[in-house]
């Protein structure tokens, strides 16, 4: 899907009342997910994870280990899904692809001078091209938050559209870095800009800035996706990333997706978790739910 909109076609964004958002989020959190719903939800969470390593000290060894884990979440337990994707820097795309490709696991690459985005457009385009050429299925770009906060929304829009051009068949996730946008009104505006500029997914955070994927932020972005769908009939995906480290929080994310967007979005085609440590907590919950016995982290491999 390539949305072809011009900046002046981005509709005005509704204002957001943060207190109201917090109340709404509390309602999602009061949903009680038990028994069969819990088990189904937990497995869904696993299948939606973008298992991530994005560190300056990443090495081939580290990436190799993580990629193996992506395909073998917990060998002691048959019938578990694999994760949706691994997420790495462009330099690791080729390696990652060679390991996980055969399991149907996608390779996502951050790009556009991740995480700051402070580079000229041609550098960002080159960065993206490199990742795509090395086999990235998905591109996780960052927006220029400085430009956004300076009011240069057109610039942000054009940049996203330019990156979308070079993605080719790779799906584009646009990282808003909500922790730097400071208000939910900004989050909503940035979401609308990203969606109309051609994002296949919108994503909360790089994982480098706190706060990251709070439920309030994710809810606000889901509403933007909902409104776009209502206006155009086109689906956009959502990826909260950073800060989702336990199963309960992940399940409440799914509750939000179900109630705001609908069950059509409850698949890793349209919803992802960007996380490095979520998988093990979910695995522990799955085993606990099956056996009734509380689990220890010692029995679940780190990566």
């Amino acid at each position: 899907m390539t949305a072809k909109y011009r900046f002046n076609e981005v509709p005005p964004s509704p204002s957001i009342d943060k207190v109201g958002v917090e109340e709404r989020v509390k309602r999602f959190q009061s949903r009680s997910i038990k028994t069969t719903a819990k088990m189904q939800g937990l497995k869904m969470v696993l299948s939606m994870i973008d298992l991530t390593t994005l560190e300056g000290k990443d090495t081939e060894g580290k990436v190799r280990q993580m990629c193996f884990k992506a395909a073998h979440l917990h060998n002691g337990h048959p019938g578990l899904p694999v994760v949706a994707a691994v997420c790495v820097y462009p330099s690791m795309v080729g390696l990652a692809k060679s390991i996980v490709g055969k399991y149907g696991i996608k390779v996502a690459s951050v790009s556009t001078a991740f995480p700051s985005g402070q580079a000229p457009l041609d550098v960002k385009i080159a960065d993206t091209k490199y990742a795509v050429e090395h086999g990235a299925d998905e591109i996780d770009m960052v927006i220029s938050r400085g430009k956004f906060l300076a009011g240069e929304h057109t610039f942000v829009f054009d940049e996203i559209a330019a990156i979308k051009e070079v993605c080719g068949s790779a799906r584009l996730k646009v990282i808003l870095e909500t922790g730097e946008l400071a208000t939910l009104d900004n989050v909503r505006r940035a979401s609308d800009i990203a969606i109309y500029a051609g994002a296949d997914f919108i994503k909360t955070s790089t994982g480098k800035i706190q706060p990251a994927a709070t439920l309030q932020v994710t809810y606000t972005m889901l509403q933007a996706i909902r409104d776009f769908y209502d206006e155009t009939g086109k689906m956009v995906g959502m990826k909260p990333a950073g800060g989702i480290s336990n199963a309960k929080l992940a399940l409440h994310n799914l509750v939000m997706v179900k109630e705001v967007l609908g069950e059509e979005w409850l698949t890793n085609k349209w919803f992802r978790f960007g996380a490095s440590s979520l998988a093990n907590d979910v695995l522990m919950q799955i085993l606990k739910t099956e056996s009734g016995i509380y689990q220890s982290a010692d029995y679940f491999t780190l990566d």
């Binding site: 943060k18 109201g20 309030q216 932020v217």
Partner: peptide, 13 residues
């Protein structure tokens, strides 16, 4: 009327 709590830029947002 709601009061938006902004103090401290806490992780509440």
């Amino acid at each position: 009327h709601p009061i938006e709590k902004i103090g401290g830029a806490s992780n509440s947002y």
